[in-house]
Each structure stands twice: as C-alpha cells, then as structure tokens.
C-alpha cells in the first residue's frame, strides 16, 4: 500500500501535489473567509478555457524537439492580424470570429514555416533565439500597427493619433462569442460549456494528430532524433511541422483569449503571452523534452487557478498594504523554479 502510494506520488510529481494542496488550502480559506466561491470557481474555468490553447501550443514544439516555444508571439501576432482584418472588413459575430481564425491560421502557417526554417538552423539554441525573435517580431509589428492603412472607426485613435488603438473593443464583433455560447449557471459554479467545448475539441484534435502517421513521426524526432533518422523520418521536416502547428495554435489561442477578455491587444502586449503558457505546461509536469495533453490541461488549470484564487485570498487575509501581490510573485515563481530544478534531476 505504502509502496503504491509512493509510486502514485512519484508519477504525479511532488510539484503538482504541492500546488494542489496549496490550492486546496486556498479554497478552504476562501470558503472560511466567505469569499465568492462561485465566482472564484467560475473564474478558474474561464481562465483555464481562455488560456488552454496557448498552453497547448507548447505541445507540438516540445514533441518535435524544439523545446518550449518562446517564439509564441509570432503565432499570436498572426491571430491578432486576423482579428484586425476581420474588423476592418466590418464583419461581426460568428462571421468575424471565423474570418479572424481563417486569416490567422493562414498567416500562421506561413510564419510558422519561416520560423521553423530559422529554428532548424539553430538547433539546441531554439529557446533563447525564440525569445529574442519574439521580442523583435513584436516590435516590428508595432511599426505595422502605426503604419497600417486601416481606417475602421472602431480601431483608430479618438484624438488623432496615427495608426491603431492599443486596445480594440470586441464588444460589437466577436467579444464573448465562445464564453456566452452554451453558458450555463449552476448553484455552485457557472460553466461556460461553449468555451470549454471549443478548446477541448482542439485538445482532442492534437491528441488525434499525435496518433496519426505524421504526429507519431514528429514525436519520434523529439524523443530520439537518431532513432527517427534510422526510421527514415526527415528530422528537419518534422521540426517544421511542429513549429507550424505550434504557431497555428498560438494564432487560434489568442483569438479565444481575446474573445473572452473582450479586447484585442495590439502593440507590446503579445510580448508577455509566452511566459504564462510556458509556466503552465512546466507546472503540468511537462519537461523540455516531453509533453502531453494531460500536462496541458492539468498545468493550465493549476497555474490559472492559482492566479485566480491566490490574490483574492491573500487580499482578504492581508487587507492592508499590498503584501499579497509580493507573496504571490514569490510563490508562483518559486514553484516554477522548483519545477525547473527537477528537469536535470532525472525521472
């Protein structure tokens, strides 16, 4: 019995057990402090839903052996451009969302291919170079937002600034389109079935893909390139496939995120989008060499739940001053750090 329990803990990972316990303590104290439990729980679900695809984007890149995709802003920008174009075309509702996705994905395929070519040239340095490539592309796109020829009244500055607004409201276009779809309030929790369903479909799709010929080939490249070579699989080709998929998911992910958030964020916002996704998947138990859908779901859930619950609870416990935010920074980064020191420690 003890043996089995130990094995279970080993499999699940101390990090996650620690976080779950911590989360549990937080929820219990939230209950004790008479916080809005329903709103907290619903918040966790919505956050998980809106961030899931961005975290999912890490899976193809890890599986194909390029590590964590710090170049995720590349994909995100494709999605944002898609959304901007769909607004510029004066589309609304489902049409706008669909059009944004189609354009975003098309751009992401091209961008992902180019980015993949770059990554193939810099094997073993992908993560560092991805970070800088992301920074650079975001800055480059800032110029685009300034110089872009769109004149849609929804997007231009109200006081005569050149270019597009920093945040574009999606209220009249596709804001909340997934969040509101099949949204069902229950006694203890509100469940956004539409949002969760939508993102889970993509999880399912990636799961299915990982069972296809190409998917298996891609994972083989990631887990043992020499084996893959001996099995007649093109290593560079599969890495490109992984990067394209990751970029596409980034593009679709930001659209899910934006419709839930209600605003489209241009300029420097995409810069910071990769870090929460990276943190989430690491916390989920993935390593830079191995990741699965389970890691994505568990990780996104835990990471986001921590963000949702930790601050209100610490706020309630420490109502004076801003100690709560500092405590949150220390704990959440500390846990990521802890997870990282586990990578080298073997399994």
């Amino acid at each position: 019995m003890g043996q089995k329990f130990r094995q279970f803990i080993d499999n699940f990972g101390y990090t996650r057990i620690v976080i779950i316990l911590f989360l549990f303590v937080l929820l219990v104290s939230a209950f004790a402090l008479e916080l809005q439990i329903k709103s907290l729980l619903s918040g966790i679900l919505i956050r998980t839903g809106m961030n899931l695809l961005l975290t999912l984007a890490m899976v193809p890149s890890i599986q194909s052996g390029t590590g964590l995709n710090f170049g995720l802003p590349v994909g995100i920008l494709c999605g944002v451009v898609g959304a901007v174009l769909s607004i510029a075309m004066n589309l609304t509702g489902g049409q706008a969302f669909f059009a944004a996705n189609v354009i975003g994905v098309l751009l992401a395929v091209v961008a992902g291919y180019v980015y993949g070519l770059l990554l193939n040239r810099v094997k073993n340095q992908e993560m560092l170079i991805g970070t800088y490539a992301g920074f650079s592309v975001v800055s480059g796109m800032c110029m685009f937002w300034i110089l872009a020829p769109f004149r849609s009244p929804k997007m231009i500055w109200p006081y005569g600034g050149r270019g597009l607004r920093v945040t574009v409201s999606l209220e009249d276009t596709f804001g909340g389109i997934l969040n509101k779809f099949l949204f069902r309030p229950y006694k203890w929790i509100d469940i956004p079935w539409g949002l969760l369903g939508y993102v889970l479909i993509f999880c399912l799709f990636i799961w299915l893909f990982s069972r296809s010929k190409t998917g298996i080939a891609m994972q083989t490249v990631g887990s043992n390139p020499r084996f893959a070579e001996a099995a007649g699989i093109s290593i560079d080709g599969m890495r490109i496939v992984g990067t394209i998929l990751s970029t596409v998911l980034g593009a679709m992910g930001i659209l899910v995120y934006a419709q839930s958030y209600g605003f489209l964020q241009l300029y420097t916002a995409p810069l910071y989008m990769a870090f929460p996704a990276v943190a989430a998947i690491l916390i989920g138990g993935a390593t830079v060499h191995k990741a699965s859908i389970t890691h994505v779901i568990i990780g996104t859930f835990l990471f986001q739940a921590l963000l949702v619950v930790a601050l209100p609870v610490t706020n309630a416990v420490l109502p004076e001053g801003n100690l709560s935010e500092v405590v949150r920074i220390i704990i959440s980064n500390g846990i990521i750090l802890y997870a990282l020191t586990r990578i080298g420690g073997g399994d």
């Binding site: 770059l118 040239r121 810099v122 800088y132 490539a133 650079s136 800055s139 480059g140 800032c142 300034i146």
Partner: peptide, 24 residues
C-alpha cells in the same frame, strides 16, 4: 514613435540573428 519601435525591432532582431549565426 516609429523610430522607437524600429530601434527595438533592430536591436532585438540583431541579437536574435547573432545568436542564430553562432548556432549556425
């Protein structure tokens, strides 16, 4: 402001590029 973005674009791009060139 475009100058400012251009600077960030070039600076980070060149750093990424130089890392890339090294790896290559």
């Amino acid at each position: 402001q475009v100058g400012e973005y251009f600077r960030a674009f070039v600076a980070y791009g060149v750093i990424g590029l130089s890392l890339g060139l090294h790896a290559w």
